[in-house]
Simulated assay, not measured.
Amino acid sequence: MAGKPKLYYFNGRGRMETIRWLLAAAGIEFEEQFLETRKDLLKLQQDGALLFQQVPMVEIDGMKMVQTRAVLNYISGKHNLYGKDLKERALIDMYVEATMDLNEMIMLHPIQLPETKAKHFATIIEKATTRYIPVYEKALKDHGQDFLVGNRFSRADVQLLETILMAEECKPDILSKFPVLQGFKAKISNIPTIKKFLQPGSQRKPPLDEKLVPKVKSIFYTDNE
């Protein structure tokens, strides 16, 4: 029997967080090996563990997988979270790519320079409420089903919920004009595996504390050694 997946990253969200979400949603327990210093990253690189010399890296099913989207695709396919056919997968991919765009904007906010922070925040809110969130509201309203694609639970639902919760951390009332998504959020949050992941003490990570930004940069950037 294969062991638990093992995740290699710093002790924070970043590009690993969506992988944590997807494993948790699939009911898969996982272990984590946190990078605390640049030496930890260099050791992985020197050991040949990182195909492209970068993390996130996930040891799973005898593989050392890198590239976030490749890892997410594998987990989704393995655990039946990727639609029933190619057309559903294409639609899931479109939804997911958009949530990842918004997710990344929010994720990068704590590392913005002070002089660009306010403008960056305003851009997040503007794009969330005019470009991204309305699309999901309309999709759910138009087909009247519980899930985004094919009326079955998929990675699109998991990643949308993750991004909604991140957007609410920026603006708590961001869904105030989107009643269908409010219902979606409540419904998906109560799926047992996700409800467990949302409880205190889970492996879900909090927003990046700005005080930790120098430490994170010191792991990934040589200028900060």
Rank of each mutant, 00 (worst) to 15 (best):
A2T: 10
P5R: 04
P5Y: 00
P5N: 03
P5Q: 06
K6A: 06
Y8P: 14
G12V: 02
R13T: 04
R15D: 00
R15Y: 09
L22E: 04
A24E: 01
A25K: 01
A26P: 09
A26I: 10
E29C: 13
E31D: 15
E31A: 10
F34N: 10
L35C: 09
K39R: 11
K43T: 13
A49K: 14
L50Y: 07
L50C: 08
L51T: 11
F52D: 03
M57G: 02
I60D: 05
D61H: 09
M65V: 08
V66Y: 05
Q67F: 09
A70K: 04
A70R: 05
L72W: 07
L72D: 01
N73Y: 12
Y74C: 04
Y74V: 00
I75P: 02
S76H: 01
N80Q: 14
N80K: 14
G83H: 00
K84W: 03
L86C: 15
A90E: 06
D93N: 15
V96C: 13
V96D: 02
T99N: 00
E104W: 08
M105P: 01
M105F: 14
M107Q: 14
H109T: 06
P110C: 05
I111Q: 10
L113T: 14
P114M: 13
E115S: 08
E115V: 13
K117A: 11
K119P: 08
K119Q: 15
T123P: 09
I124V: 12
I124R: 03
K127S: 09
T130W: 05
I133W: 06
P134K: 06
V135N: 12
V135K: 15
V135P: 05
L140C: 01
L140S: 04
G144I: 03
F147V: 01
R152Y: 06
R152L: 09
F153E: 03
A156H: 01
D157V: 02
D157C: 06
V158N: 02
L161Q: 01
L161D: 02
E162Q: 08
I164L: 05
I164H: 00
A167Y: 01
A167G: 04
A167S: 15
E168G: 10
D173Y: 06
L175N: 03
S176D: 12
K177C: 13
K177I: 08
F178S: 00
F178L: 02
P179R: 12
L181K: 01
G183S: 10
F184P: 06
K185E: 05
A186R: 11
A186E: 13
K187Y: 07
P192C: 08
P192R: 05
I194L: 07
I194H: 02
R204A: 09
R204K: 15
R204C: 08
L208K: 00
L208Y: 02
L208M: 15
D209P: 12
K211C: 10
P214N: 04
K215V: 09
V216K: 02
I219N: 04
I219Y: 02
I219C: 07
Y221A: 13
D223C: 15
